[in-house]
């Protein structure tokens, strides 16, 4: 599904990813763990097509297609979803209006008929209920005045509505208390499917207690320094990132 090979990425002339390689099969859930500054968010943004990053070498292919030349919206149309670490506020635009615009933009691209307001509302209500969210939230301006937990739940709601083939969840656990974390994790787990790959990007091991990955990669200094099963997360929990500090951690 997703094959990243020897990816080098710079921001403002500074190299952040330094030859990252990673393969994510369809239906798999992989975690990428790393300390602050290791390049986790850069990886998420580069995959989603954010501007301002320079790919100096390497490739990223999704379902056989070269990803790196595509604008962000086309990657979204291919089925790539990014759960944002810091969901963005858009004043004056109701959450429902935004979600409908997003769903219909993607439906249109797939050649499916757009949902009208009533049809969309039905779908939205079902998903909101499934996530144990408050329906009133849909009337509020997108992410404006939302608590940290509400923002992250809103991301998961979008994941559920958009049903992507690849979900990259960037620090979905940050800023969540334990109850919110459980709800968000349950929402994500419910969306695990044989045709949906997930890349869970996180600093802390605790999220992986609730979303159990098939494989864990440790990102450090812009490269994957270790890959393995759950045991890797356990080592991290016990010894911290120092256990994997084979490259220049401090420089990252």
């Amino acid at each position: 599904m997703l094959v990243i090979d020897n990816l080098h990425v710079s921001v403002g002339g500074k190299e952040i990813l330094r030859g990252l390689s990673l393969t994510l099969p369809a239906g798999a859930v992989h975690a990428v763990m790393g300390p602050n500054g290791s390049g986790k968010s850069t990886l998420a943004h580069v995959l989603a097509g954010r501007e301002g990053y320079t790919v100096t070498a390497g490739t990223a292919r999704f379902a056989g297609q070269d990803l790196l030349g595509l604008p962000a919206e086309e990657r979204a149309h291919l089925g790539i979803f990014l759960g944002f670490q810091y969901p963005v506020e858009i004043p004056g635009v109701s959450t429902m209006y935004f979600l409908k615009a997003a769903v219909n933009a993607q439906r249109k691209h797939r050649g499916e008929p757009e949902l009208d307001a009533m049809e969309f509302l039905k779908v939205l209500r079902r998903e909101i209920k499934g996530l144990g969210m408050d329906e009133a939230m849909a009337q509020r301006p997108l992410n404006v005045g939302f608590s940290g937990g509400e923002k992250k739940r809103n991301e998961v709601l979008q994941l559920a509505l958009l049903r992507p083939k690849l979900a990259v969840l960037d620090e979905t656990d940050s800023g969540l208390d334990i109850d919110a974390l459980k709800t968000v994790a349950a929402g994500v787990n419910a969306l695990r499917a044989p045709d949906r790959a997930m890349l869970i990007i996180t600093h802390y091991q605790r999220l992986l207690t609730y979303i159990v990955p098939d494989r864990v990669h440790v990102l450090s200094g812009g490269v994957i320094v270790a890959s393995g099963g759950e045991e890797i997360a356990e080592v991290l929990e016990r010894e911290g990132y120092a256990a994997f500090a084979t490259t220049t951690l401090s420089a990252a």
Partner: peptide, 23 residues
């Protein structure tokens, strides 16, 4: 940030601007 957020959800840049301006 706002533009990227909208585009990541599948909106074309001009639609994203339209949405933000409308808000």
């Amino acid at each position: 940030d706002q533009l990227f957020y909208c585009r990541q959800r599948g909106l074309a840049p001009e639609d994203a601007v339209g949405l933000i301006v409308h808000g």
